[in-house]
Design a protein around this nucleic acid. Sequence first.
DNA 1: CACGATGTCTGCATCGTTGCAGAGCGGTTA
DNA 2: TAACCGCTCTGCAACGATGCAGACATCGTG
Lengths: 339, 339
Amino acid sequence: MRDATLRDVASRAGVSIRTVSNVVNGYAPVSDALRAKVETALTELDYRPNLIARNLKQGRSGMLCLVVPELDVPYFAELARAVIAAGRRHGYAVMVDQTDADPSRERELLTRNSRLTLFDGLILSPLTLSAQELRERGNKTPVVLLGEHLFDGSFSHVAIDNVAAARDATAHLISLGRTRIAAIGDQPYRTGETAQLRTAGYRQALEHAGLPYDPALVRPTERFHRRLGATAATALMALPHPPDAIFCYNDLLAMGALRGLRSAGVRVPDDVAVIGIDGIEEGEFSTPSLSTVVPDKQQIATLAVESLVALIEGGTPPAPAEVRAAHTLLPRESTLGAI
Amino acid sequence: MRDATLRDVASRAGVSIRTVSNVVNGYAPVSDALRAKVETALTELDYRPNLIARNLKQGRSGMLCLVVPELDVPYFAELARAVIAAGRRHGYAVMVDQTDADPSRERELLTRNSRLTLFDGLILSPLTLSAQELRERGNKTPVVLLGEHLFDGSFSHVAIDNVAAARDATAHLISLGRTRIAAIGDQPYRTGETAQLRTAGYRQALEHAGLPYDPALVRPTERFHRRLGATAATALMALPHPPDAIFCYNDLLAMGALRGLRSAGVRVPDDVAVIGIDGIEEGEFSTPSLSTVVPDKQQIATLAVESLVALIEGGTPPAPAEVRAAHTLLPRESTLGAI
DNA sequence: CACGATGTCTGCATCGTTGCAGAGCGGTTA
DNA sequence: TAACCGCTCTGCAACGATGCAGACATCGTG
């Protein structure tokens, strides 16, 4: 059966539509007698407001959309939890979508009639979208970007300092006395990528310690997944001069590396120390537990939502801001050991 | 600036609103001359349709909502990916929300003016909601339930056979020659829970093998998280007669158990064999890798979306169906060893 | 030339809600 | 008694789109 509308309730209660609306929303003063009649009719008809109509009238939906490449990458799942919480604090429901890390899916978001129009704002963690594509989109929903990707100043944008994070991770390995430090996760073929910033940080740390940069120790990976980490670690150990430490560009690569090393009979951290970035919970329980650099996901989420809400609600849209979130080094078993 | 509407485009192109709408949607035949004029105006004004208005008129949004307790529980993240894919195949965008496993958040979904009205349908994996609460909700969006929770016949519902899954897992441990088999994850205080079905399967397997049931070996846990698995495993090993195998009610508990055992100096699988349920990718890369019972997430997602779409689009709503998805035993290192 | 058939295009009503302006009414004040 | 106030309540218009019925022009046919 059709849902009851304000009109149905009004005719049943013998009042005007407007009065029913007032009762439902608690707007204007309504006499007790009428209110009672209306409320009876409301429950009898099991009325519930049509939010689409309300949204149309009010020009907003109260919903934000968070788009990440892959939800089953724990970092994004943990981030999503934080963003959902931050959204709630600002009175917005956050719905999450993923693009499967598929460029065409990412571009779909920018389409004329993307479903995103239904949302008041968009928090996007892009993987392959270029700044230009984003600027030229046929879609004016307010956007805040996550991650180090594209910062040409057109959009507000929240991220940790990836160069510093990578430097900290590498420096930590160096502080253990390791000298042949490998890196897994470079992506030299993309522009503006997180990966390249992390490579820069890695090299800075080497340089600062006076260690040589050996390109053979830097393994690119197409994506940041466990399996690729395992493969890369195995390949590294097969080198004539294998490394004594590995910096992985994220924790998932590191989890794979731990596994690959173990299968190769390499002891961690005794033979090879391993560190990642992301601070996912999984690394706390692995064997050995994983040292990592933890981005402050709470802070990232809060800053992103605050920026977005400012864009949405602000009379004068604030200038696009580049916001830095904090990160912390978290040493665990995978880098245990005296200097 | 205000977004351009059909009216704006129409007045600029000197045609009727209706004609612009026809051009945008490719509905009626439009002469080339007019079409060109309209399309010029469309691009000049950067028109994009207001989906809220369209949805209001058409009475549908083309979006489904998937609600899970916690996105950072890998099983749910992996399931979400499958549901999103299945939704796309049917022409729906799937947006994901989580309740933080918070009963009040779950109940919020059923509220009069829950944001869910914006969606054409709801796929819900409830944690604490009772069947009655669901039936009495003030919200008529079509629903399909996931997981073994509440099957009083009011709703369509997709799940694996949890009793059989637990039986298979336990039987696998027994087939290794283990005789003191513990269980982590019972939840005796809730009604109709997945956990209780798994306990039933566990006991069936013991009984079938003629093994005694020892309540001391069954550890309840409030939730299915790594830390609780670690704690429970540690406690089990402190018993006067510790177990030689542990069946964990999900993989996350098992990951915690592996870690707890390792910290206690227990070797897996030599001293204690471990198995979980869920088939999360994390278990493939842990040390040791985790034996598990894998629910067919693709199938669960496909069946759930198909049921929901049938509810939404079907002229005659099909009767609520109970659908069983397949599961498979996947032995890995954590249960390696001769019988 | 009259007629109907076809092909384009338009205006009105409508989806369900809320904003706005004001109607009706009882009571207070001068 | 007139003027005014405040409290309730109402009707109309509007949000931006689409469904529908029909207007109008053009064309072919008898």
